[in-house]
Design a protein around this nucleic acid. Structure first.
Lengths: 76, 76
DNA sequence: AAAATATGTAAAATTAACTTGACATAAAGT
DNA sequence: ACTTTATGTCAAGTTAATTTTACATATTTT
């Protein structure tokens, strides 16, 4: 189930901007299974920082470019 | 137990650079318990991206400034 | 159109993140 | 010295991330 507090994820778009970078290929590069990539792209859940850092590195973007908090989550 | 693939975490130093920012205060601001902050600072585990983004926002730094992958983890 | 590759769905199992609560030590304030 | 506030430790429980496996549907290639 998708968590309610889900963060925004631009993984799919960024991955597809890299020709030939398949889910499996990306999964191999960051050391997870294809299911994990798929689930993150689908928004089923969001990764841990470690994985986020690896994904950002492979895609050559900042973590903040890959994932971002939904607006209006600033209230205490 | 600290995971072997642990990422580097500069949370404690950054938190302490903010006078008055106690573990409890930080925990409240990002919506977790004090134990979670303590465990992350101690390196017991690393947070999910969502929490990492919130911590980075409160501390006004980039996620990459707070957490970073250990060097030499670039081999396939 | 058949074969191969890429993506999607779904469920059970495992591991790790996070919580709760209780107590112990350290530091700071009065 | 006492009280308060901040940090640390430990254990058990809950929830979420990740794996594994298996199959289904697209998409691409020949």
């Amino acid at each position: 189930m998708k968590s309610q507090h889900a963060i925004q994820c631009r993984l799919r778009a960024l991955r597809r901007s890299r020709p030939g970078l398949t889910q499996q290929a990306l999964a191999d590069q960051v050391g997870v299974t294809r299911q994990t990539i798929l689930s993150i792209e689908k928004g089923n859940y969001s990764p841990t920082v470690g994985l986020a850092l690896k994904l950002a590195r492979v895609l050559d973007v900042a973590v903040e470019d890959l994932f971002s908090l939904p607006e209006g989550e600033d209230d205490v």
